[in-house]
């Protein structure tokens, strides 16, 4: 009886959060915070599993690496993988031909998002689990490569936090972390850098269209589309 009640309340809570995200993602975050205060982290984890990844990505995108969202601590590896897959759909500025630096902006945002979920995590086992989940799927692995487009491997790499050779939160820092947590993924990144040399513009548009194809709806509207804008004689 109690279990049934718990399950129903989780579903209804997630439905409520979903409706709040549509109005404002900042409010949704506050609502999740309030639920976590009352019911605990495990409960919130269950709610997030019921939420679609698009809504979680909308909440996460409000923040950057320097002040991460509170839900970034609770996310499971599978949810993180889904969020990375969904995130290209938010690149509205791809359409903006007036901005010249929008592709660098997109790359920076991607770095910020990955950092906020990976670098703020202190548990090394969980970092490894997240990276294994990401590298198992082709689309999220392509997203992980994005900060490393145009990046060069440095020869001498030592993880010395007293006198670091890199700035905090940069691609160098991320690569160091990946090298420690999951060397297999780090090797994939190095292979990618040496094998494919494409401009940032092409990489981003390819990734965007691939994500778009992955999430495209099953509606067959092409037959209607060909007819409906034709004027009557």
């Amino acid at each position: 009886m109690g279990n049934d009640y718990e399950a129903i309340s989780k579903v209804s809570f997630s439905r409520a959060v979903k409706q709040i995200v549509e109005m404002s993602s900042g409010m949704a975050e506050k609502a999740i915070e309030a639920i976590a205060d009352r019911k605990g982290d495990e409960f919130v984890k269950n709610i997030l599993e019921h939420l679609p990844p698009v809504k979680i990505a909308a909440i996460l995108r409000q923040h950057d690496f320097s002040c991460p969202s509170i839900i970034s601590w609770i996310l499971t590896p599978k949810i993180i993988m889904d969020v990375l897959k969904v995130d290209p759909l938010f690149w509205k500025s791809i359409y903006d031909r007036n901005q010249s630096d929008n592709f660098f902006q997109i790359q920076n945002d991607a770095l910020d998002l990955i950092n906020s979920m990976l670098l703020n995590e202190e548990d090394r086992d969980k970092q490894g689990a997240i990276l294994q989940h990401i590298s198992a799927d082709s689309l999220s692995l392509l997203y992980l490569f994005l900060p490393f487009v145009g990046w060069q491997v440095k020869k001498s790499q030592t993880l010395d936090f007293e006198d670091p050779e890199f700035d905090f939160g940069t691609a160098d820092h991320l690569f160091e972390m990946i090298r420690w947590a999951d060397p297999y993924t780090a090797k994939k990144i190095i292979d990618f850098i040496y094998s494919t040399k494409v401009p940032l513009f092409y990489y981003i548009t390819d990734l965007w269209s691939e994500a778009f194809d992955y999430f495209d709806t099953d509606q067959d509207y092409t037959s209607v589309e060909a007819v409906m804008f034709v004027p009557v004689d």
Binding site: E22, Y221, V224, F229
Partner: peptide, 20 residues
């Protein structure tokens, strides 16, 4: 069904299909 297909086609032509 026709109406929903036409809405998709209209959104594809003038906006984009991602945002609800």
């Amino acid at each position: 069904k026709q109406g929903s297909q036409m809405s998709f086609a209209f959104a594809k032509r003038y906006y984009n299909l991602v945002y609800e």
